[in-house]
Simulated assay, not measured.
Amino acid sequence: LFFFERWLTCMEPQNLTSVSEFLLLGLSDDPELQPLLFGLLLTMYLVTVLGNLLIILAVSSDSHLHTPMYFFLSNLSLADIGFSTTTVPKMLVNIQTHSKYITYAGCLTQMSFYFLFGCLDNLLLAVMAYDRFVAICHPLNYPIIMNPRLCGLLVLLSFFSSLLESQIHCLMVSQLTFCTDVEIHHFFCDAPQLLHLACSYTSINTILIYFIGAIFGGIPLSGILCSYSRIASSILRVPTTGGKYKAFSTCGSHLSVVCLFYGTGLGVYLGSSISPSPGKDAVASVVYTVVIPMLNPFIYSLRNRDIKRALRLFRSGAYSP
């Protein structure tokens, strides 16, 4: 109830701002590129939604996949759908209607959900790394440690932590004063972009943003690195080559997603702080907001026999009891 009340408060335009809407400049101003961008983004968004929905339906319909690893995977797919839905539909509407405006409340709402699902993706990847660590390094105790109660608790903790981060960003931005410059050099509302537009003093806000990013991004990333260092150490002790390959194959898909997600995300935020380039940042943001959520179902399905078998059963209607 507390978070819901704070969310409603955050969504209401504050008296501190003198603008009622912002202008999202998008990816390109070239009119000839707009139909191409619309078709490409629409196709990628539909593939993202359908692919992740298939993962969720396959996991829920096949009893053989009712394990912690696939439970976390289905939640990751749900977060990916939300992550893309936060930014892509608004961009498609703007291209189709030739209007680039977004209201002040709409901008804060989009930013809140962007941080909510982005942080949830981040935390779920860390939880999945911990799951692989327990499965490989403590296989005998895996059913006891990764019990349904702990799995549900980890997902709930990830969600409420993400909600907390999104509300902190929203509350910080809602206290800023905006003047006449309302052009956002991006295709969605992001906190760093809004800080550049503020007329008020933003040094403290900038420090807080990077501090919060270090907590909600750095801690999960440290957990992932720690888990995989222990996993690598455990795999190297396996005597046979076949055993090493089998152990590594269980976390290969997850590792691929982690590298893509963190590689592009860190590249955008670190690159923008060192050498700001709005055009390049917007294009790079498409990778981790649209491309990576679209690729996740393919990465997990193409490299996973259980998922491929479940998808075949789902298409044929032969669900497992």
Rank of each mutant, 00 (worst) to 15 (best):
P220S: 09
N147C: 09
Y319C: 13
A282H: 01
Y228C: 14
L225S: 13
F83P: 01
R149C: 06
K308Y: 06
I299F: 10
L176T: 11
R230W: 12
Q96S: 15
M294I: 07
G218R: 00
R309V: 12
G267Y: 01
S99Y: 01
M172N: 07
W7V: 08
R149G: 02
F83G: 02
S234G: 04
L16P: 01
S60D: 10
S174V: 07
T264F: 08
C179L: 08
I168Q: 06
V283I: 15
L73A: 12
V88T: 08
L176W: 10
A105P: 10
D181A: 14
N147I: 10
V286E: 01
T264M: 08
S316I: 07
L194R: 05
L157G: 15
A129S: 13
F188A: 07
A247S: 12
I95H: 04
G118N: 00
L150D: 09
E165Q: 10
G51C: 07
Q110I: 00
M44E: 13
F211R: 06
L92E: 12
V134Y: 04
V49P: 03
S222F: 14
F178Y: 14
I215V: 15
F133G: 00
F3T: 09
Y269M: 15
V283F: 12
G118R: 00
G106Y: 02
G242T: 06
L41E: 07
T240Q: 07
P297V: 11
N52Q: 06
D121C: 14
Y114F: 14
R315S: 13
R312G: 15
S227E: 03
M294S: 15
F133E: 05
C189A: 14
T48V: 03
F71E: 13
Y262G: 05
Q34R: 13
T206C: 12
K100D: 12
Y101H: 14
H185G: 06
C259L: 05
I95P: 00
P293A: 07
P278C: 06
L116I: 08
N75Y: 12
T177L: 04
I224A: 04
C189E: 03
P220D: 08
L153T: 15
L123I: 15
A198E: 04
G271F: 04
I55Q: 02
Q110F: 01
G252N: 05
N75K: 14
T86R: 00
A135L: 10
C179V: 09
Q175I: 00
L140W: 05
N15I: 11
L157K: 02
N75T: 13
D190W: 01
T87I: 10
L208Y: 02
E32M: 04
P293G: 11
E165D: 05
V155G: 01
L260H: 09
S275D: 07
M128T: 09
S77T: 09
P148A: 04
L78H: 03
C259P: 00
P13R: 14
L37I: 11
G82P: 03
H196W: 07
A214S: 12
S285M: 11
S20T: 14
G265L: 03
I307R: 01
P139L: 04
E183C: 02
S166Q: 04
V182P: 01
L37G: 05
V291K: 02
D306P: 00
S174A: 15
C151M: 06
A58N: 08
D190I: 09
H169A: 13
G217H: 01
V286M: 08
M44Y: 13
S84W: 05
V127L: 07
I212Y: 08
I55G: 05
